[in-house]
């Protein structure tokens, strides 16, 4: 009477071939053993470091804002001004490049040049770019400003170009049909459609630039990163903890502020 099976196994979902599945599992296992083996941990050093680690945790829990306050303040102002100026300059340069990199608006040669600029800007890590700018322009926030502006171009121009490519074609067609020039087309058909997102992206990039400004300071491009680097070099973990908390706080404020502003603007 009961002719139905009493066992069932979930069929494999991704690698349906048994040999491939086993091979993959063995491969992953071998890699994992080798990779773990390549960690040349110096246990004595780590045990010695445990005490420092505890001091850092304490420094984070009981941050010291006062003893290095003037350094922290200086670094913070540098970082913030660097962030503000680089975001604005970056966006100002991104807009023409972004329009140039939109396939539906730009002629082929312009398109390839702009896409090339974007690709270069995105491929190079901020830190590496900062090293070069520091070598060229000397230590200090100016190199940081250039780095962040450069990185902003890749980010904003790419997303702007994608946005322009996604616009509602019928609106552009309707404006074209009135006999509008290229500039009028941009102004009447494209700008209203991409503006809200451009504002959102700009605010988001401000947030990223601030976070990055803390990093590029480590390689000499000024700002709060330089202060942090000094504090860690001097083993002043309580000041380092204070700086990290300030960074977290500002990122939080920027994030909430920008999401609020975006809602307000839409």
């Amino acid at each position: 009477m009961s002719s139905y099976p009493t066992t069932w196994k979930r069929p494999p979902q991704i690698f349906t071939h048994r040999g491939w599945r086993i091979g993959l599992q063995i491969g992953v296992l071998v890699w994992f053993v080798l990779a773990i083996g390549s960690i040349d941990a110096n246990w004595e050093r780590i045990i010695a470091g445990a005490e420092r680690g505890m001091r850092f945790v304490q420094g984070f829990l009981q941050p010291n804002f006062t003893s290095r306050w003037s350094d922290i303040y200086g670094g913070l102002i540098e970082s913030l001004t660097m962030t503000f100026t680089s975001t604005i300059v970056g966006i100002a340069i991104s807009i023409p490049i972004g329009i140039g990199a939109a396939r539906n608006l730009a002629p082929a040669p312009v398109y390839y040049v702009c896409r090339g600029i974007i690709a270069v800007s995105r491929a190079l890590q901020e830190v590496i770019v900062a090293i070069f700018f520091v070598a060229m322009f000397g230590f200090g926030p100016f190199a940081g400003f250039l780095t962040l502006s450069f990185a902003t171009i890749g980010f904003i121009a790419k997303l702007l170009a994608e946005d322009i490519e996604d616009i509602d074609e019928s609106q552009a067609e309707a404006i074209r049909a009135t006999g509008a020039s290229w500039w009028q087309l941009i102004n009447y058909a494209v700008q209203p459609q991409v503006m809200p997102r451009l504002i959102g992206l700009s605010l988001y990039r401000f947030d990223i630039n601030f976070r990055e400004s803390a990093v590029i300071g480590i390689v000499g491009a000024g700002g709060i990163g330089a202060t942090l680097n000094t504090a860690i070099d001097r083993y002043e973990y309580d000041s380092a903890g204070a700086i990290l908390l300030i960074i977290i706080g500002i990122v939080l404020v920027a994030e909430y502020g920008s999401s609020y502003l975006r809602k307000f603007l839409q």
């Binding site: 009961s2 139905y4 099976p5 009493t6 066992t7 069932w8």
Partner: peptide
């Protein structure tokens, strides 16, 4: 799952 559950599910 117990065999009876699987059998019932097939049924």
């Amino acid at each position: 799952y117990p065999g009876t559950d699987i059998e019932r599910a097939y049924r």
